[in-house]
């Protein structure tokens, strides 16, 4: 069988460059498998060889999308892979967005790509039409189950074998419909499903209704000089010592903290509880995440009516959509009853 070339994309952590302090590393390429690529190589069909690894810091990739994309494209051009494998990124948002972008670049170059992500990773929704994304758990603990599915898909793509449905192959639905031949015509299948439904039996829909959860933009404000503005953040700024013990990752709750009479958030009294990004800058000056100083100045200038005397904070890192939704729904109710008319929500 013809030898097939595989290239793997990894972030700075899995690429063994370093932790969060190396998140600003620009793309680098290596002519061999690195980190999870070693395990992947063992699982790939015999005719598939990992000829290269591209490693880039998650911070660099997301903050310099155009430059990073251009460099990765050049590297892929040099490696000339038959298939690109990106990640797995599990529930790491920045890593998932990077893997998805790499998949899109490969797709545009005519190269199929495979990644692995937790279904709530924003990379899934943004990029699933460009690459196959195997469903993984939300942390690297699921590496052992992720790699075999990814290797199997990558091998099939490299060898031009046909790819089964998402359920058969373990990847997340790409929103693509394909014609297939089946024994029974549509009306019969629909009646069968309907009967099962009426009998409270389980059935598999052939076309799940897409769920678009969009909210209409709220009406614009005409005069901010009389408006109370509140600050909300997913950047994890908390009073020093983190009194409510908000988790560094996968937060289970949020906090409400007084900023009454404060002209800024000093590094003596506030810090970040957020994991997954380098906390040095937020700890040095928490206003970089929750801009109390700027809003106080604007309050003084009369540009806004007043700054709401509390801010709300949670950690966005790996926090489930369901939790974030319930935190914000509670916060929103409270803001309404307190007469807050505008919100600035900051994220890291």
């Amino acid at each position: 069988m013809e030898t097939k070339r595989i290239v793997v994309y990894l972030n700075q952590f899995f690429g063994q460059i370093g932790g969060e302090e190396e998140a600003n590393t620009p793309p680098q390429s290596f002519d061999k498998p690195v980190g999870p690529g070693m395990g992947l190589q063992q699982l790939l069909p015999k005719n598939c060889t990992i000829v290269g690894t591209i490693v880039c810091g998650d911070g660099y990739f997301n903050e310099n999308l155009e430059e990073a994309s251009a460099t990765v494209q050049k590297m892929l051009d040099n490696f000339k892979p038959h298939v690109v494998v990106a990640g797995p990124a599990f529930n790491a948002g920045r890593y998932g967005m990077a893997c998805g972008t790499v998949g899109k670049i490969a797709h545009e170059m005519g190269i199929p790509a495979v990644s692995g992500m937790y279904p709530e990773n924003p990379g899934v929704e943004s990029y699933r039409q460009y690459l196959y994304i195997v469903e993984t758990g939300n942390s690297a603990a699921s590496m052992r189950t992720a790699l075999p599915s990814m290797a199997k898909l990558a091998g099939k793509l490299a060898n031009h074998e046909s790819i089964g449905t998402p359920a058969e192959e373990g990847y997340l639905s790409r929103g693509i419909r394909r014609n297939i031949f089946v024994e029974k015509r549509g009306s019969e299948r629909a009646i069968e499903m309907l009967l099962k439904k009426l009998n409270n039996e389980g059935f598999d829909t052939e076309y799940p209704i897409p769920h678009f959860d969009r909210v209409e933009p709220a009406q614009a404000l005409t005069d901010l000089s009389k408006v109370t503005v509140a600050l909300v953040t997913s950047g994890g700024i908390v009073p020093k010592g983190n009194p409510d013990r908000i988790e560094a990752s996968s937060a289970s709750h949020y906090g409400k903290y007084s900023i009454k009479d404060l002209t800024s958030l000093s590094s003596d009294s506030f810090e970040t509880a957020h994991g997954g990004y380098d906390p040095v800058y937020a700890n040095q000056a928490p206003d970089r995440v929750v801009p109390v100083d700027a809003l106080r100045a604007l309050e003084k200038e009369g540009k806004i009516g007043q700054l709401f005397p509390y801010y709300y904070s949670t950690v966005g890192n790996g926090t489930s959509v369901a939790n974030a939704k319930s935190f914000a729904a509670e916060i929103a109710q409270e803001l309404v009853s307190e007469g807050v008319q505008a919100v600035i929500l900051t994220s890291t």
């Binding site: 959860d213 969009r214 909210v215 209409e216 933009p217 709220a218 009406q219 614009a220 404000l221 909300v232 997913s234 949670t314 974030a324 939704k325 935190f327 914000a328 729904a329 916060i331 929103a332 109710q333 803001l335 309404v336 807050v340 008319q341 505008a342 919100v343 600035i344 929500l345």
Partner: peptide, 12 residues
């Protein structure tokens, strides 16, 4: 989180 705040009619 932004959506839940906007859902109650507060511009965010």
């Amino acid at each position: 989180m932004v959506k839940e705040i906007e859902r109650v009619g507060i511009p965010v």
